[in-house]
Deep mutational scan, measured.
Amino acid sequence: LQLFIKTLTGKTFTVEMEPSDTIENLKAKIQDKEGIPPDQQRLIFAGKQLEDGRTLSDYNIQKESTLHLVL
């Protein structure tokens, strides 16, 4: 599923993930694309901070959802 990642600077980029992927996987993918170390990434969806060990489906993140990346 394609997700939109929006940064505080207003930049938006996309990543391609599976619902079974963990937040950790997502942070690694963001590191590949943007060079931001996972330990500096905080991801927010629907007002909640996402925890590394959980999956996208745990948070009911669907295709074309927008996640906010806070550094």
Rank of each mutant, 00 (worst) to 15 (best):
L1F: 07
L1I: 14
L1Q: 05
L1S: 05
Q2D: 07
Q2N: 09
Q2M: 10
Q2I: 08
L3D: 00
L3E: 00
F4R: 12
F4V: 11
F4M: 13
F4D: 03
F4W: 10
F4C: 04
F4N: 14
F4Q: 10
F4E: 09
I5K: 00
I5C: 01
I5S: 00
I5R: 00
I5W: 01
I5A: 00
K6A: 15
K6I: 12
K6L: 14
K6Y: 08
K6T: 08
K6D: 05
T7A: 06
L8M: 13
L8W: 14
L8T: 11
L8Q: 08
L8D: 14
T9P: 06
T9D: 12
T9H: 11
G10W: 04
G10S: 06
G10T: 03
K11T: 09
K11N: 15
K11G: 08
T12H: 11
T12E: 09
F13D: 01
F13C: 02
F13W: 07
F13T: 03
F13Y: 07
F13E: 01
T14Y: 12
T14K: 11
T14V: 12
T14C: 04
V15Q: 02
V15N: 00
V15F: 12
V15T: 03
E16R: 15
E16G: 09
E16S: 07
E16D: 10
M17P: 02
M17S: 11
M17N: 02
M17G: 13
M17H: 04
M17T: 12
E18R: 15
E18H: 09
E18M: 15
P19T: 06
S20W: 14
S20Q: 08
S20Y: 15
D21M: 11
D21C: 03
D21A: 10
D21P: 01
D21H: 12
T22A: 05
T22M: 07
T22Y: 10
T22F: 07
T22D: 03
T22E: 03
I23A: 02
I23H: 01
I23R: 00
E24S: 14
E24I: 09
N25K: 13
N25A: 07
N25L: 10
N25I: 12
N25S: 13
N25Q: 08
N25V: 14
N25W: 12
L26S: 00
L26V: 07
L26G: 00
L26K: 00
K27D: 00
K27I: 02
K27W: 03
A28H: 13
A28W: 15
K29T: 08
K29D: 03
K29A: 13
I30Q: 00
I30A: 01
I30S: 00
Q31M: 15
Q31F: 15
Q31D: 06
D32T: 08
D32S: 10
D32I: 15
K33N: 06
K33H: 12
E34R: 14
E34D: 04
E34M: 13
E34K: 10
G35E: 04
G35H: 08
G35F: 04
G35Q: 06
G35N: 10
I36H: 11
I36R: 03
I36C: 03
I36P: 05
I36T: 12
I36W: 13
P37H: 13
P37L: 08
P37C: 04
P37Q: 06
P37D: 14
P37I: 05
P37K: 07
P38G: 07
P38I: 09
P38Y: 10
P38A: 13
D39S: 08
D39G: 07
D39L: 08
D39Y: 07
Q40S: 11
Q40P: 02
Q41G: 03
Q41T: 04
Q41C: 04
Q41I: 13
R42C: 05
R42K: 08
R42P: 01
R42S: 11
I44N: 05
I44C: 05
I44V: 13
F45A: 03
A46E: 08
A46K: 13
A46S: 11
G47P: 01
G47A: 04
G47C: 04
G47K: 04
K48L: 15
K48E: 12
K48Y: 07
K48T: 08
Q49C: 05
Q49L: 12
L50V: 05
L50P: 01
L50N: 00
L50M: 11
L50F: 02
E51C: 04
E51L: 09
E51Q: 11
E51A: 13
E51H: 09
E51D: 15
D52Y: 05
D52I: 06
D52K: 05
D52T: 15
G53C: 04
G53D: 07
G53V: 15
R54V: 06
T55K: 08
T55G: 03
T55L: 06
T55S: 09
T55Y: 08
T55D: 03
T55V: 15
L56D: 00
L56M: 06
L56W: 02
L56R: 01
S57F: 13
S57D: 08
S57Y: 11
Y59F: 03
Y59C: 03
Y59N: 02
Y59A: 03
Y59I: 03
Y59S: 03
Y59M: 04
N60S: 14
N60E: 10
N60Y: 12
N60D: 13
N60T: 04
I61P: 03
I61K: 02
I61D: 02
I61N: 02
I61E: 02
I61Q: 02
Q62S: 14
Q62P: 11
Q62G: 14
Q62I: 14
Q62W: 10
K63T: 08
K63W: 09
E64T: 08
E64H: 15
E64A: 13
S65T: 11
S65L: 04
T66A: 04
T66W: 14
T66H: 12
T66I: 09
L67F: 04
L67H: 02
H68N: 08
H68R: 06
H68W: 06
L69I: 06
L69H: 01
L69C: 02
V70Y: 13
V70C: 04
V70S: 14
V70Q: 07
V70W: 14
V70P: 01
V70T: 07
L71R: 10
L71P: 10
L71I: 12
